[in-house]
Design a binder for these strands. Structure first.
Length: 213
DNA sequence: TATGGGATTACCT
DNA sequence: GGTAATCCCATAC
């Protein structure tokens, strides 16, 4: 049985924005407890661009237990927990020592949809995986998959039959980082134009509350 | 050790 | 339109 796993080289390129684009159309695969494949096509990503990026957990080279995976070699996972209830799955990109990562924000389900529906207890369709927390729940991704090699057999990426060309890709500001000052508007979110599984961001990003003295 | 907030979601009016 | 849920993590003492 041929392996279609993306090679290490896919992740270790020096241009993380290009890697974030290249992830679109790739298949994210996790085995279910019964051994069956659960998978989906990546349709939305966000790039986090290292120590200069005020939107990144690793801004200023902040290196802690949580952010440590971002400093590793490309092609490993960075999974973290937010809001007391959600996990987020990132692909570490680039070379060791430079904390670049790409958040996977939405998938188009392909295999193991029964598993996704069971975990999500939700209607079939886009709500299964059209957000970073939703897709982690659907795929069963939690902290036990943090710092995992993406060439392992616990979680990996493959080519899919989808051929993506630049004309299929839209870009815009990242979601939920209103604290990122001059990086708030950096167009480092990428998605497949018109794909129904792309996340539905809040119409109004939470404005930083500023009380008058 | 204590505290405040978060790379979100679901549910309410 | 608004906000509760819920706990890890980073930071300040």
């Amino acid at each position: 049985m041929p392996t279609n796993k993306l090679p290490r080289k896919f992740y270790t390129g020096s241009d993380t924005l290009q890697t974030a684009r290249n992830l679109l159309g790739k298949l994210l695969v996790v085995p279910a407890p019964d051994g069956k494949r659960v998978s989906g096509i990546i349709v939305e990503t966000e790039a986090y661009m290292g120590p200069e990026d005020k939107g990144s957990h690793a801004f200023g080279n902040r290196r802690t237990n949580r952010t440590e995976p971002m400093f590793g070699m490309g092609g490993f996972s960075y999974v973290y927990f937010v809001y007391g209830m959600h996990y987020q799955f990132n692909v570490v990109a680039g070379t060791e020592g430079i904390p670049h990562a790409i958040l996977v924000r939405a998938l188009e389900p392909v295999e193991g949809i029964d598993w996704m529906e069971e975990r999500r207890r939700q209607d079939r369709g886009p709500n299964l995986t059209n957000g970073p927390g939703k897709l982690c729940q659907a795929m069963g991704i939690d902290l036990t998959l943090n710092r995992e090699d993406l060439l392992s057999d616990r979680i990996w990426l493959e080519k899919s039959r989808n051929k993506i060309v630049e004309a299929d890709i839209s870009s815009g500001p990242r979601i939920g980082i209103d604290y990122a000052e001059e990086f708030v508007h950096a167009p480092w979110r990428f998605w497949l134009t018109g794909n129904p599984y792309v996340s539905k961001p809040p119409t109004k990003t939470k404005a930083k509350q500023r009380l008058l003295p």
